[in-house]
Structures are given as C-alpha cells and as structure tokens.
C-alpha cells in the first residue's frame, strides 16, 4: 500500500542515517532500518537481514505492548477525571 517515495522527498540533516540497501531510503536508527527492510523488501533480504528483522520485530511487539498498557492507564485516568468533574459540576 505504501507509495513509491523519491529521494527528493527526504532531507537528511545529520550523519546518523542508515540507508536501505534496496531502495536507498534513509532511516534514523538501526532498529527502524531492520524493520524497514523486513516490511518493504521481504523477498530480497539476506538471511542475516531476516534475523535482524525478526529480532527488531520482536522488540517492536514488546515495546508496543508496554505502550498499550500506558495508553490504557491514561484512558482510565482521563475517564475518572471526567467522571469526578461532571459529578462536582452537576450534583
């Protein structure tokens, strides 16, 4: 689903960028680089890249799980703030 991005749609303003060996897209970290190669070039990647992708993907799932727990906590907090506020205002 992702459209083809051309080099002029990127501005690389530091020296940290890692470039994708298949499409040349600059990525900000090794983690993102590994994920990008796995998501966009699954048929072309080497065995070593497959391994780094799988590790990065697992890391991403773990991080997402922690992130979602935080989101649940915030939603709960917001809910209670509103319930209390409405209770004080309406009663």
């Amino acid at each position: 689903m992702s459209e083809q991005l051309t080099p002029d749609q990127f501005t690389v303003d530091d020296s940290e960028a890692e470039y994708c060996p298949y499409c040349g897209r600059p990525l900000a970290s090794e983690h993102l680089w590994a994920l990008h190669v796995g998501e966009h070039h699954p048929d072309a990647m080497t065995e070593a890249e497959t391994e780094t992708y799988e590790a990065a993907n697992e890391q991403e799932s773990d991080d997402l799980f922690v992130f979602h727990i935080k989101v649940m906590a915030i939603i709960t907090l917001v809910t209670f703030v509103f319930i209390y506020t409405y209770t004080f205002v309406w009663l």
């Binding site: 689903m1 998501e39 997402l64 992130f67 979602h68 989101v71 915030i74 939603i75 917001v78 509103f82 506020t85 409405y86 205002v89 309406w90």
Partner: peptide, 29 residues
C-alpha cells in the same frame, strides 16, 4: 443542570485525545 463552557470545551478536547489513544490499538497494516 447547566454545564459550564470550560467543561464543555474540555470534554471536546478529551474526546479527540481519547479517540487518538484508541486508534493506537489498530496497528495491523
């Protein structure tokens, strides 16, 4: 009962923030 304007506005902002948080659960490409 009357709802003060500040609470009305806060509720609106809250709905948007919460709907963003809820969209974060849809991560399947």
């Amino acid at each position: 009962v009357e709802t003060p304007t500040w609470l009305f506005l806060m509720t609106g902002g809250g709905v948007i923030a919460v709907s963003f948080l809820l969209t974060s659960f849809v991560t399947d490409r």
